[in-house]
Amino acid sequence: MKNYLILITLTLLLIVLVSSLNEMPVMGDIASPAYNEVAEYYINNTQEDTNITNIISAIITDYRAFDTLGETTVLFTSITAVVSVLGFSIKDKKE
């Protein structure tokens, strides 16, 4: 009974989500608002700014390198959290 209620609610949610497609730009449209001057700047200036061919690599390690530093900090925080929840293994400490 509870599962049917959830299923009906989620179907309504899916209909709401799909109906939002009318207001969105068509996928792959060059005039979509996401393809704005920021992306054009990266595409046009990667070669002279960083001298590498992979534009995504240029974004994550040069233009937004500080963001990637935060990303590695997230990984470090996750392993700190896992160690603090599970604890060090006693076997490894004896070595």
């Binding site: 960083t50 001298n51 240029a58 390690t61 590695t72």
Partner: peptide, 12 residues
């Protein structure tokens, strides 16, 4: 090529 980019990639 790319200066520090390959160094940072190795670190990551």
């Amino acid at each position: 090529s790319g200066g520090m980019i390959s160094l940072i990639t190795i670190g990551i």
